[in-house]
Write a protein that binds this DNA or RNA. Structure first.
Length: 622
RNA sequence: CGGGAUGUGGCUCAGCUUGGUAGAGCACUGCGUUCGGGACGCAGGGGUCGGAGGUUCAAAUCCUCUCAUCCCGACCA
């Protein structure tokens, strides 16, 4: 027995209560660690564990991982986007946490635990109190002082470090925590996938300069790859936008899944991969059709009720890519109009980046009409008073159709250069599957995925705002160069389920499976079968292999269904029949074949578990 | 924030149109039979019908307000 410091499981399970322990004398007091372990002997029996599985799906759930987590008794909803973890769900969460901690520690990070409640002053100092918006949950204490519940911890960690670290000798430093965050999302959904309260691992690195910070970043990139590989996930690390966190460089770790909220573009040839929000593509201009350019722009054509590109294209009997889409945006720098080909979608992040704006949004139609006198639905780039940004494809489009800035009218035969022009021509659209890779001659494919991790190079954004400095070896006072690194722990569990399930339930990757094996006793009435199961159960405990022993007085069908739903990688089944033949049946959750082991020699069974432990998952019974 | 939908025992839902004793299945308790893929019989326990107000002799049902939850959308061209 390795876990209790050399003391056998059996020894402790016989003296299960305080009385027995204290009578044993010798000053033995059951401390926390042992108590946890003592109880585990019991709670790994299905009959004793609080594991409420559901036959029917609660009406609240739509997405698969959410439905399965509810049915498997892992989580329960308390309020929108706020969930309780039940024992089974918590075990999966803890398994992911354990992997995260191991890899973070190996990468040289040190664990801390920061307060969830944070004073407004810090956020005002970083200027995010105003900038962060409604997602920041704010409240007052009894003295009417402003506080928030931390959605992220750059401020707190920077404050902590600036007060402690004075010299380059103390750097680099990487501190992390696993903690509850709260972000007051507009629309929480899909269970743990987009909750408001959620468990996050967040790490923050501090370095002397950009070169050192890049090394820290790379170390985290590597650690994250290990973490998600060990969790048995099929993922990609992709270039991403840094959003509200800030900074100038970041990667997202995305688990590939149809139900994912993110779309990622990746090259079929090289290793280029980016969030579509960020993805670039190579642009090869096509020539303009000369003959039609001779004709002048038309007068305004009455196009009643043609407010969408589809309507307009249908009206003129052309394809959508012969029209242009003109959209009015508002940012902290004022209004602007963005013009893209009719069949393309504006990439707001690219627009924001080109403008250099802090925020960008689509104003309500009424505001565009009232403030600018422009009729939404009939907009065009000709003779407008606000700045116009044009996508790089538009100048190569030839005669096009656009709104006439007059309600119910459009123009056609509009030509770039002749009829309108502007200073800013740039890549403004969302990348699309089939476009050329910006790095090589391959093409892009688009996949959906779930963002489970995100790493950022922050630079000196926060160290400057909060004045976190150190004295360098040359005696110069410098700002620390920071990075921050997050993993959605609960979301990783959900993503793992999203990627590993079938119609019968979850199929946990071995590494994060709450129980590695289910032992189904099909004949509780049979004393010899039960005695053997008990012995085997104890042997699993002794070997420190997490096991769920189904000792419930239920019919076999119920046990099989639950074992499939709960997704234990290995299922062991013993009934009267098998016992008479002297065999126990083993089946892997992710395969249909099964294998029988002789009851009097289970050596090959133990080597199966050794192999699973080593390979983490995905092996066969051969 | 806008749009759509739904709130009835722990879960899934019916009942509402046309007001008149709150229902079914699952789950739960007891007994019996059954026992290798979600068994069956008998007997039970459990519900302010999301909340408030109104109409009425009478409201789960009609009206008003409100709260909660889920889904769609942050695309005007």
């Amino acid at each position: 027995m390795t876990r209790c410091g050399g003391v056998s499981t059996r020894a402790y399970s016989v003296c299960r209560d305080y009385d027995t322990l204290s009578k044993a004398g010798k000053g033995v007091r059951p401390h926390c660690f042992l108590l946890c372990f003592l109880s585990s002997e019991d709670f790994m029996r299905f009959s004793r564990m609080h594991l409420p599985t559901l036959k029917e799906v609660p009406a609240e759930a739509e997405v698969l991982s959410h439905r399965l987590m509810l049915r498997a008794g892992m989580i329960r909803r308390l309020a929108a986007g706020i969930y309780s973890y039940l024992p089974f769900g918590l075990m999966a969460l803890r398994n992911v946490e354990a992997i995260v901690r191991q890899e973070m520690n190996l990468a040289g990070a040190q664990e801390v635990l920061l307060p969830a409640v944070q004073p407004a002053e810090l956020w005002q100092e970083s200027e995010r109190w105003d900038f962060y918006g409604k997602e920041l949950l704010r409240f007052k204490d009894r003295h009417q002082r402003d506080f928030c519940f931390g959605p992220t911890h750059e401020e707190v960690i920077t404050d902590l470090v600036r007060n402690e670290v004075r010299s380059y000798r103390q750097l680099p430093l990487n501190l992390y925590q696993v903690q509850t965050k709260f972000r007051d999302e507009i629309r929480p959904r899909f269970g743990l996938m987009r909750g408001r309260e959620f468990i996050m691992k967040d790490a923050y690195s501090f370095d002397v300069d950009d070169v050192a910070a890049t090394l820290s970043y790379q170390a985290m990139h590597e650690a994250y790859s290990h973490i998600f590989s060990r969790c048995g996930l099929n993922f990609r690390a992709v270039e991403a936008d840094s959003g509200a966190i800030g900074g100038n460089f970041s990667h997202e770790f995305v688990v590939l899944a149809e139900s994912g909220e993110d779309a990622i573009a990746s090259c079929t040839k090289c290793d280029y991969a980016a969030n579509v929000e960020k993805a670039q593509s190579k642009f090869v201009p096509e020539s303009v059709i000369e003959s039609e350019v001779e004709l002048p722009v038309s007068d305004a054509v009455a196009t009643p009720d043609c407010e969408s590109i589809e309507d307009v294209a249908a009206f003129f009997k052309v394809s959508p890519n012969a029209t242009i889409k003109s959209m009015v945006f508002e940012s902290d720098l004022g209004f602007c109009m963005v013009v893209v080909p009719g069949d393309r979608e504006v990439n707001e992040l690219k627009v924001k980046a080109i403008l250099g704006a802090n925020w960008l949004e689509i104003p309500p139609s009424a505001r565009v009409a009232d403030d600018l006198g422009l009729p939404v639905g009939y907009l065009g780039p000709l003779e407008v008073s606000i700045p116009v940004l044009v996508d790089r494809m538009v100048p190569h489009m030839g005669p096009m159709i656009c709104g006439a800035n007059r309600n119910g009218y459009h123009l056609h035969r509009v030509c770039w250069g002749r009829d309108f022009t502007c200073e800013t021509v740039a890549d403004l659209v969302l990348a699309r599957a089939g476009e050329l890779c910006p790095r090589c001659d391959g093409s892009l494919q688009i996949d959906r995925g779930i963002e489970v991790g995100h790493i950022f190079k922050l630079g000196t954004k926060y160290s400057e705002k909060l004045n976190a400095t150190f004295l360098d070896h040359d005696g110069q006072e410098k700002h620390m160069v920071m990075g921050c690194y997050g993993i959605g722990v609960g979301r990783t569990v959900a993503a793992a389920i999203e990627q590993n399930h079938d119609e019968n339930g979850i199929s946990f990757p071995y590494a994060i499976a709450p129980f590695k094996v289910a032992l189904l006793n099909l004949d509780l009435k049979s004393a010899e079968v039960t005695a053997f199961c008990e012995k085997l159960y104890q042997e699993f405990l002794r070997r420190n292999i997490s096991i769920l022993y189904d000792d419930r007085n239920e019919r076999p069908g119920v046990k099989f269904k639950d074992a499939d739903l709960l997704g234990m990688p290995v299922r062991l089944t013993l009934g009267r029949r098998g016992f008479k033949q002297g065999i126990i049946e083993a089946k892997l959750r992710n395969s249909t074949e099964s294998k029988e082991f002789p009851l009097d020699n289970l050596d090959s069974l133990w080597s199966l578990f050794d192999e699973l432990e080593t390979n983490d998952s995905r092996i066969s019974l051969k």
